[in-house]
């Protein structure tokens, strides 16, 4: 990434027509890929539908794509799902935000203060090795059936991903860039703001993709284990009455939400990391 010293400058401010052929070809390839992705989806759904209509797959256990779509439509039009979706999203967002802030904070501190990292290393490992889902019952006892217990579960998942990536990102700061800033008489605080944090940004962003998923897992699993609201609650209720269509519809909705948020993050990432040469 940094080995660009001898590379010719990019066509500066070039209009699309002037771009090099390599990138044009890549763009053409992207259209094909999207088409294939859609085709894959359509094919899988069609096979599923056909198998369930032919009763080769028992619709009681596997439901039917058409039923699932119908159920989703019903949820959305009757407004039944909005309350649950909002609850889950709020929980996931809080878990994501809190986990990220704490993760970045601890990551920076541990990377800068060697003693801290050395002393707490085994504890961090132990906590990270712990399957977080088994904390859910404890959080239910501590924080009740409301959103706090779900947020807490999500935070324990998000924190470690962000923490490790921030730690690594700060550790991998280019020594020459760091020394240059020091020679220009940056204070510790300025080094943090101008060098360490931006340098760790790429790492932090790559972890955000994972941690969004984790935030949602925390929320949904928490709801599933005990709540009165949320997608996880809907799935648990459906499961309770052997309504596989409801379970699948809930799953699908969750996936769609993660996908949307992830695309948003990707745009943000592209903007904030625009200083990097495009690979």
């Amino acid at each position: 990434m940094r080995d660009t010293l001898d590379k010719a400058p990019e066509p500066l401010g070039a209009e699309d027509g002037k771009l090099a052929t390599a990138s044009k070809r890549r763009k053409a390839g992207r259209g094909v890929i999207v088409a294939l992705q859609v085709a894959t989806f359509v094919m899988l759904v069609a096979i599923w539908q056909a198998l369930s209509v032919q009763q080769i797959l028992d619709p009681f256990f596997f439901s039917r794509p058409s039923d699932i779509a119908l159920r989703l439509w019903e949820w959305l039009t009757t407004g039944f799902i909005w309350e649950h979706l909002a609850t889950t999203l709020i929980e996931a967002f809080l878990a994501f935000a809190i986990g990220t802030v704490i993760g970045v904070g601890f990551g920076l501190a541990f990377a800068r203060v060697d003693l801290l990292a050395a002393v707490f290393d085994p504890y961090i490992r132990i906590l990270n090795a712990l399957p977080r889902v088994i904390l859910a019952p404890i959080f239910l006892l501590w924080f009740g059936l409301g959103i706090a217990s779900k947020v807490a579960l999500g935070v324990t998942l998000v924190f470690f991903v962000v923490f490790f990536n921030t730690y690594q990102g700060v550790r991998e700061v280019d020594l020459v860039i760091l020394n240059n800033a020091r020679m220009l008489q940056a204070t510790d605080h300025q080094l943090l703001r101008h060098v360490y944090l931006p340098s760790a940004m790429a790492w932090i962003f790559s972890s955000l993709h994972t941690s969004i998923g984790f935030a949602l897992v925390g929320a949904v699993v928490g709801e599933y284990l005990g709540s009165a609201r949320g997608i996880g609650y809907v799935v648990a209720q459906s499961e309770g009455v052997f309504d596989t269509t409801g379970v699948f519809a809930g799953l699908l909705l969750t996936s769609a939400v993660v996908l949307c948020v992830d695309l948003g993050i990707e745009r943000l990432e592209r903007y904030l990391l625009r200083w990097r040469p495009r690979a």
């Binding site: 020679m183 931006p198 940004m201």
Partner: peptide, 15 residues
């Protein structure tokens, strides 16, 4: 009293 001109790229790439 000194500044340093490095052989490698030392500019902040994100600025």
């Amino acid at each position: 009293h000194a500044t340093y001109l490095f052989q490698q790229d030392a500019l902040l790439p994100w600025r």
